[in-house]
């Protein structure tokens, strides 16, 4: 009985309940958007965008603007600039991201060094702070989460087609640049509302870990799309809970929890895959010619 009481103790604190809720929601949201991040090779974009958001957040703090307004506009502008620069083949997307987002991050660091003492909130963006969560943060994650689910469900086939086979999708009437833009907006919004929970330095891992783990568990896009958010939510919730006892920043524990699950699944999938290849010598029914 003593243990049971002990394990439930953190739940008696409101800030812990809020933190657990937002970590779970943030994990689920990153898991959902992460499917596209992983399959489209956008993880470096996610990494870059979070760094860009940091610059915007620092600027907003110094100017006493709202975080969401400052970081949001800044992130959006960076995303559009990356898209614009990367379209020039001669530069390449990765280099474009490197230039634009690292410059933004450097500006954030400079502002933090100059004004960091007075503006504690800059620190929170860098490392994440689950326990300083306000209702507004939770509502923001819920809002972007609902938007993402609605968009992914209603545009499902177009998003799948444009992600799997952009050339043929374009020929078949799918607005491929439009789908890319939609995903960029969702990714930016996701980073914007979750970065204060996980931290700039760890957010890209939360975008990738649930999705790659889900990928190892299924060969179906549809199944990956619900499995990844479930895994993300588990990583977020479990990581948050363990961080209470480990007395370690929650962002770090969330990522470590995800990494541990990934390693277990990866090892198991290796065994399973070898078995499947060995049993692959049978072909389907032969073709019927009329």
């Amino acid at each position: 009985m003593i243990f049971a009481v002990d394990f439930l103790k953190p739940f008696t604190y409101e800030f812990f309940r809020n933190g657990l809720l937002i970590a779970t929601l943030a994990g689920a949201l990153c898991g959902l958007i992460g499917v596209f991040v992983v399959l489209r090779g956008m993880s470096y974009i996610g990494h870059g965008l979070s760094h860009a958001v940091f610059g915007g957040a620092a600027l907003a703090a110094v100017l006493n603007l709202s975080y969401f307004l400052g970081a949001g506009l800044w992130g959006l502008a960076s995303g559009l600039m990356i898209g614009r620069v990367a379209r020039k083949r001669i530069i390449g997307a990765d280099a474009a991201i490197g230039v634009i987002t690292t410059a933004s991050f450097a500006m954030g660091l400079a502002l933090q060094a100059r004004f960091g003492q007075a503006k504690q909130s800059i620190d929170a963006v860098l490392f994440g702070n689950v326990l300083g969560v306000f209702t507004g943060d939770i509502l923001a994650v819920v809002g972007v989460g609902i938007l993402s689910v609605v968009v992914v469900v209603t545009l499902y086939r177009k998003l799948l087609f444009a992600t799997f086979d952009p050339e043929v999708a374009g020929v078949s009437g799918v607005n491929v640049p439009g789908m890319e833009a939609v995903l960029m907006v969702l990714l930016s919004a996701t980073i914007l509302v979750t970065v204060r929970v996980i931290g700039v330095l760890l957010i890209s891992a939360l975008l990738v870990l649930p999705a790659v783990t889900a990928r190892l568990l299924t060969n179906s896009f549809g199944r990956m799309l619900w499995l990844s958010p479930v895994l993300g939510a588990i990583f977020g919730g479990v990581g948050m809970y363990v961080s209470w006892y480990a007395d370690v920043p929650s962002g770090a524990v969330i990522i470590l929890a995800g990494t541990l699950v990934f390693i277990v699944v990866y090892s198991a999938a290796g065994v399973r895959r070898r078995g499947r290849v060995a049993g692959m010598d049978h072909h389907g029914p032969s073709l019927r010619t009329a």
Partner: peptide, 15 residues
């Protein structure tokens, strides 16, 4: 890419 035979055939149908 994680996609099954059914998903490939279905993706080209307008939703």
């Amino acid at each position: 890419f994680p996609v099954t035979v059914g998903e490939v055939v279905g993706m080209s149908r307008p939703q």
